[in-house]
Design a protein around this nucleic acid. Sequence first.
DNA 1: CCCGGTATTGTTAGCGCTCACAATACGACG
DNA 2: CGTCGTATTGTGAGCGCTAACAATACCGGG
Lengths: 357, 357
Amino acid sequence: MNPEGGVLPSPLDDVPLRRPTMEDVARAVGVSHQTVSRVLRGHPNVRDSTRAEVLRAIKDLGYRRNSSARALATSRTHTLGVVAVNTALFGPASTLAGIEEAARAEGFLTSTVNLRRLSRESLTQALEHLGEWGVEGAVVITPQRQAVVALSTMRRPFPIVTVEGGHDLDIPGVSVNQHLGARLITEHLLAAGHRTVWHVAGPQDWIEAESRMAGWRAALEDAGAEPPPPLLGDWSPLSGYRAGQQLAGQAVGAAGRATALTAVFVANDQMALGVLRAFREAGVRVPDYVAVAGFDDIPEAEYFAPPLTTVRQDFETVGKASIRLLLDRIEGNSPDEPHLVIDPSLIVRSSTATPLS
Amino acid sequence: MNPEGGVLPSPLDDVPLRRPTMEDVARAVGVSHQTVSRVLRGHPNVRDSTRAEVLRAIKDLGYRRNSSARALATSRTHTLGVVAVNTALFGPASTLAGIEEAARAEGFLTSTVNLRRLSRESLTQALEHLGEWGVEGAVVITPQRQAVVALSTMRRPFPIVTVEGGHDLDIPGVSVNQHLGARLITEHLLAAGHRTVWHVAGPQDWIEAESRMAGWRAALEDAGAEPPPPLLGDWSPLSGYRAGQQLAGQAVGAAGRATALTAVFVANDQMALGVLRAFREAGVRVPDYVAVAGFDDIPEAEYFAPPLTTVRQDFETVGKASIRLLLDRIEGNSPDEPHLVIDPSLIVRSSTATPLS
DNA sequence: CCCGGTATTGTTAGCGCTCACAATACGACG
DNA sequence: CGTCGTATTGTGAGCGCTAACAATACCGGG
């Protein structure tokens, strides 16, 4: 087609044949490569004038230090791994972003491995993969109990901290106080005059689901209310929908009983969405007949029908904290408290507004 | 507290004082390090028995090759960068996951940089950061026009491909056919008997928003329908809500006119959620009075009130394709077509069900 | 039993950087 | 003006691996 033949590389795209090295910079200034290295590493014992000349040459030549050589010489790669599942979901994705930002601020590169399932085998493979690249440590987001257990019994080739991995095992980690979140929600509902609160729980092999249920139950018991039997979902809107259909049956005709359905705490916003739909279809008006609350505060929650009362977790803080913990481990400082807990906060919207009656 | 004092490192956590090297493996077998290297690299000229012995020793010693040394010797890091904005959102997060998986399958590590804003400066910094670590190339998710423009006029220190960066510039990239998606939606609505379709658009500096609007307009014009003035949003549910309030005003009292409001195509699902809420509050029943469609197919869309007709993009394919394109560039093959386009598909749900009337 | 050829293995240099140490330079002091 | 101490700079040896080349080993044919 092109009479010239061949494809010309974009002039903006092309790379010099050989990247300049420290030696090149040194030669340009007339010093030794070591002096250049010292400038780069911020070593104090370099005369200011020399430092300036070196920096100048670095700029002129467009020198960039070679990370592989540096890593080889120092045996520090300044790279961290992250292992996560379901990264397309709001929670994991936000945590990931928080982790990456925190690591970057500390001068580390992060590499994420997304797993389809969190099995012992896939976890091993992921760590293997990261190990191949010489990560100095890894954050593993382990919301499922089995994953933490697997991790705790596994040979770990580098320091590891967990996120949402609970705090009953010996691996250091950071998690959100799910128990408190559930308690806040439940107490909020009780304070609004509900005699009890029903619960649509997440899958119980998830630590978060388990804690939320425990928090809910604890709040009820503290208040002397009777905990109705919880329904189980799998976090998906569909499972919430199914649970909602069941609950809608309860909502009618049981008024007056101690466990009459007037309030539901759903373990995440997505299931709450399903519950809302089921209620709508069944003619159960929210919040007029039944108050509904969720958990997570996904961006959509504010626009549900009606806007959803929920609990917000500060993923950025979680990310920062996990990186802090991990770097401490890598540096060899074992902090006193290997488990950090972040408190969530209650977001009240109209799905739990007290009916005027 | 602990009478023993000090924290004992977990026995599972500890790392041998010195990781075994190729030399160690070689010595164990009684061959030269080069033979070990050959086995590792799958070089053919190694006697089977030797290979077996070497593999055995590798396993016994728990040898892992040192990626930094390898990278230094080959000047290939087998690392790719990814730059993205708003990674907590469903679309970017899914694309990210697709990219990571595809890269891992090709034996590459990916490092993601999450940006808060996609400015020329932040982009430069991100690429700088990745460059420091010696990535061989990068995928940049550039949904905003200015970002692609910046990229195209920028010195690029390594091969780069864009995702959602449109295809009118000279940087290779892959994108979803937004134009087609919008057309599918619009035609679907027209086929259902609506005389025209209104549009709540995304911010017009976003390439996707622009293409969706163009596709919508083209479909209307092809059908000889009159395009009503589009409303502008910013992707957020709130902006959709505002647009919905405006539209709700249109919905009443204008029946009979060529541009009567009976159908709305909203440029993404989140804004559609806002529109639905506004309509609900204004008593505009969906789909009975007005049909509403979105774009993206976020997991929640199926449980909106009512379930939302929308367009699904195959992010996994996008990720795979972008990695393929990037690796081609890195290997020096310049494929004929530097722009790949992935077709999306229409998902019909009840928010556009034809009213019985 | 020697020769040429191929299959297999070993040897030697780096890759670009940091570290430990050696070698200067410079200034102040006696 | 020599000497010592500190500030600054240079030298050499790796880090663990790969790539090019050199050196054997082994095989069949003459």
